[in-house]
Amino acid sequence: MSAVFEQVRHRPPRPLARPRELVVACAPMRSNVNLSTIARTAGCCGVSRMIVCGHARLDRTIARDGADAVELEVRNSLPPVLKTLRADGFRLVGLEQVTGSADLHSYSFHRRTALVIGNERAGLSADELALLDDCVEIPVWGLPFSYNVATATSMTLYEYCRQFPDG
């Protein structure tokens, strides 16, 4: 016997019991498409704060409601941002393929996390990596050797939300 499904478009967001203690911090991005996609996903995940570096601009047709749901702070450089976030009690978690990185499938996030995203081509610099508490990476089973930065960020944000579904 098969189930009967009725389409429900644009179901209202699931309410959070408490605000998310997750900040997304991005190095300067080459593509406003990637940045806008990350903002849209952050909005879907209930993330209220993104710190972006460089000449960041959102494409509102891509970011859509995420552009309004997420407070976007633009800064010049990532290392001072990371130092401030650490002083504010955030665990700094880079999304990067490095020696000693944890597999996203087995990583346990801290509730108060700053997810640090590198540039699409260069990743995170040595100075930025030196400031991190942890790095996570997402296994790849084919080519190319890594996921697109917006795709990888989306997967990582979803995993954080899976671990903290109520905020």
Rank of each mutant, 00 (worst) to 15 (best):
L129R: 12
V70Y: 08
H105P: 09
G43F: 11
S48Y: 05
N119M: 08
S36D: 05
V98N: 00
R40T: 06
A87R: 10
S31L: 12
Q163I: 12
L72Q: 08
C44S: 08
Y158V: 14
K83S: 14
G123K: 01
R30M: 14
F90M: 02
D88V: 00
G142M: 08
N34T: 01
L82A: 01
M155S: 01
F5Q: 10
E96G: 04
G54L: 11
V23W: 04
S146V: 08
L115D: 07
Y158C: 13
T113E: 02
L82N: 03
D68N: 13
V93F: 01
L131D: 07
T113D: 00
T153I: 04
V8N: 01
D133P: 09
A87I: 10
A3E: 13
E71V: 14
L92K: 02
F109I: 12
R9H: 10
T113S: 06
L104Y: 03
L82S: 04
A122P: 02
H105N: 14
S36W: 13
L129V: 12
V140E: 05
E21K: 14
R20D: 11
A130T: 04
Y147K: 01
D59C: 00
Y160L: 08
A87M: 10
Y160H: 09
L72G: 05
A25P: 07
E6Y: 02
D59E: 10
R60C: 10
R75W: 15
V33M: 10
V98T: 08
L131S: 03
F90T: 04
S106F: 15
A39T: 05
G54T: 10
L78W: 15
D134N: 05
A150S: 14
R9Q: 12
C44V: 14
I138Q: 03
D127T: 03
V23E: 06
M50N: 04
S125K: 07
E71T: 15
F5E: 12
C161N: 06
L78S: 06
G100K: 03
L104N: 02
S154F: 15
D127C: 05
S2M: 04
M50K: 02
R121C: 12
V23Q: 03
S48K: 08
D59M: 06
V136R: 00
D166M: 08
L16T: 01
P165V: 12
I51P: 13
R64H: 11
T153E: 03
H10P: 07
L115P: 13
A39D: 06
C44A: 15
R60E: 13
V116I: 09
P15F: 13
A69C: 09
G167L: 14
R162P: 08
V4P: 06
S108L: 15
A17Y: 13
G94T: 10
V52R: 02
A56H: 06
L104A: 02
L92N: 02
R64S: 01
P19E: 07
F90E: 07
P13T: 11
G167R: 04
Q97W: 11
A67L: 06
N34C: 04
V140I: 15
D88C: 03
T153N: 03
S31A: 07
C26N: 03
L95K: 00
A87E: 15
R18H: 12
E159L: 08
H110W: 05
P80G: 01
E71D: 14
R57M: 09
R162E: 09
V24N: 00
R111I: 12
S125N: 04
